[in-house]
């Protein structure tokens, strides 16, 4: 995780498909420390967009990391793309 006293970071392309939960959070490349989780990535997204999601709304989010289902605690190891999408209900 550390190299020459610095934290190694990775760049991840994030797509949001859940505007009613995350508002105007922008699709884009977000940088997180190596070994970060989805939760860490989401915190970075919140800070960079200055939009902070209530804890009770987080149940409506699910994730895909490079197309595979992931959870809040999934470690982003060699992951290029994360989709943050709405959880399924009814319909």
């Amino acid at each position: 995780m550390f190299k020459n006293g610095k934290v190694n970071t990775v760049k991840i392309q994030v797509y949001f498909v859940c505007q009613e939960v995350v508002g105007d959070m922008k699709d884009g490349i977000y940088e997180v420390a190596e070994g970060s989780t989805i939760r860490d990535l989401f915190s970075v997204c919140e800070k960079e967009n200055n939009i902070f999601i209530k804890d009770e709304y987080r149940q409506w989010l699910v994730f895909l990391a490079d197309g595979k289902q992931a959870q809040w605690d999934t470690v982003l190891h060699k992951v290029n793309t994360v989709h943050i999408i709405r959880a399924a209900v009814g319909g």
Binding site: V17, C18, E20, V62, L64, Q69, H83, I85, R86, A88, V89, G90, G91
Partner: peptide, 13 residues
């Protein structure tokens, strides 16, 4: 109900 069309395709539903 059609509001979830895109996410449902992406997640495999």
């Amino acid at each position: 109900t059609g509001g979830a069309y895109d996410s449902s395709i992406i997640n495999g539903d």
